[in-house]
């Protein structure tokens, strides 16, 4: 399949039509369902809907990483993945740390405003 490759293309990951199409179709489903859940008011409970659409978003991020950004454990000898995981850890700490700390500050120190 890669006979027509000349040498200077070897440093970029090889993309394929089927890979992009799989990623695209998965993304369409993973985008359409959360919009439908919210716009159609499918579930009574807002908490349930929120958990489900967050899960869909997380899966879609992984789909984009694999099929569009060609992420794997081999590229750059694993450094791509390592830096991504490091970023994900920082992202988690920043997001959930901020929300957790600030929520408790509000509850404990300004009970009248909640």
């Amino acid at each position: 399949m890669s006979e027509h490759h000349d040498h200077h293309q070897d440093d970029t990951p090889h993309a394929s039509f089927s890979g992009y199409m799989i990623g695209f179709l998965l993304s369409v489903f993973l985008t359409a369902i959360p919009f439908w859940l919210v716009m159609g008011g499918v579930f009574e409970s807002k908490g349930t809907t929120a958990v489900i659409i967050l899960a869909f978003a997380a899966v879609q991020v992984v789909v984009h990483m694999i099929y569009f950004l060609h992420m794997n454990f081999h590229s750059e000898g694993g450094w791509n993945m390592l830096s991504l995981l490091f970023t994900a850890v920082l992202l988690f700490i920043t997001l959930f740390g901020s929300l957790w700390v600030m929520y408790n500050m509000n509850v404990l120190m300004m009970p009248g405003m909640m």
Binding site: T31, P34, F35, V38, K46, T49, A50, I53, L54, F56, A57, Q60, V61, H64, M65, F68, L69
Partner: peptide, 17 residues
Amino acid sequence: DVIWIGVFTFVYLMGSM
């Protein structure tokens, strides 16, 4: 596009609820 997944989920969809 990956960032936009976060935006439409976190800001628009959850904001609308």
